[in-house]
């Protein structure tokens, strides 16, 4: 009896992959990565120290790659539910462009390299925070919370809120109240942002079996929660000015932007139950993206002016 009786392999076994570099870049979630890079950069600029510019660029790169690695690991684990949602069905794994093992290896490899690079080029506190962020996003959020509780994005939002803290730590080697305020702004912003999306993507999340707030607690409860969080977002936005590490001018800009957030959320709150068009929810989702970019851009400009002036 021959040990190997079959001379031919079936299907795609043993075939070369057709994945291109572009597919692997898509695994890094470039749009999320750009927000991570931006907020981490703002954390660096606001930190009370002047870094070597090249080391600062390397630190930003390491944070970006670490965030991308977390995205790749998220896509590896979530391939089954991504295939069921219109929003995510085009990702490389559901489309069969990248094999699960390739995505897992890619994510683990980049996670290790990004943390090591940040540790060696900046400091090990920043590297530990990056490692914790990747762990929190992949294990706590993706593997545990996402499929088990409607509070998934509330708690999981901590991962997305950490980049400015990592940026600050990369420059100063410390975590301070100021960096935690930057964390708080993104942490409080995450629930209304994703719940606005979940309101008009209820069908998608239901098909995938993800217990998002509108699917579990209903539209009315979600709209009230969105409004409550919007008020907290607006209040947290002006904290940098109140605590004295941003100017009054920034405070005024943040108040206006926060007022806009509350205004859009008010329209969501007043939206009729059963409104299928979900216009106010879509408008809030779009505004929330503008808000986060604008508030950090305002902090960046304010920080740069105070550096030049001071």
């Amino acid at each position: 009896m021959a040990l190997v009786e079959r001379k031919h392999v079936d299907g795609d076994v043993g075939r070369l992959s057709e994945a291109t570099a572009g597919d692997f870049i898509a695994l890094l979630k470039p749009r999320v990565m750009s927000l991570v890079v931006f907020t981490a950069f703002v954390g660096m600029v606001l930190a009370p120290a002047t870094p070597n510019p090249l080391l600062a660029v390397i630190a930003i790169l390491a944070i970006a790659v670490g965030a991308g690695a977390a995205g790749a690991l998220n896509m590896w684990y979530d391939a089954d539910i991504d295939a069921k949602m219109a929003r995510t069905a085009g990702r490389p794994l559901p489309r069969g462009r990248v094999a699960p093992g390739e995505a897992l290896g890619f994510g683990l490899f980049l996670s290790a390299f990004s943390v090591m690079t940040l540790g060696l080029m900046a400091n090990w506190l920043a590297a530990s925070l990056l490692a914790f962020t990747i762990f929190f996003y992949v294990v706590i959020y993706t593997m545990w919370l996402k499929r088990s509780t409607p509070q998934n994005i509330v708690i999981g939002g901590a991962a997305g809120a950490l980049p400015p803290v990592i940026g600050w730590a990369a420059i100063t080697g410390s975590v301070t109240l100021e960096s935690l305020v930057l964390f708080l702004i993104i942490f409080l912003w995450t629930p209304p942002h994703f719940w606005a999306l979940a309101l008009f993507k209820t069908g998608d999340y239901a098909r995938a079996g993800i217990p998002m707030m509108p699917n579990v607690a209903g539209e009315g409860h979600t709209k009230r929660q969105i409004f409550a969080y919007a008020v907290l977002v607006a209040a947290s936005g002006v904290l940098p000015s109140v605590l004295g590490f941003a100017s009054m001018a920034y405070g005024a800009v943040a108040a206006v932007l926060g007022g806009g957030f509350v205004w859009y959320s008010w329209h969501v709150l007043r939206m009729a139950d059963g409104d299928r068009a979900m216009g106010p929810a879509k408008a809030l989702f779009a505004y929330s993206l503008v808000y986060l970019f604008a508030i950090f851009a305002a902090l960046l400009v304010d920080g740069m002016i105070s550096r030049v002036g001071g």
Binding site: K7, R15, L16, E18, A19, T20
Partner: peptide, 18 residues
């Protein structure tokens, strides 16, 4: 008996290698 890579697979491998 060997698996012959298609043009598309070879092109993708070259892209990844670069």
């Amino acid at each position: 008996d060997r698996i012959k890579p298609t043009e598309k697979e070879l092109k993708a491998r070259r892209n990844r290698s670069i």
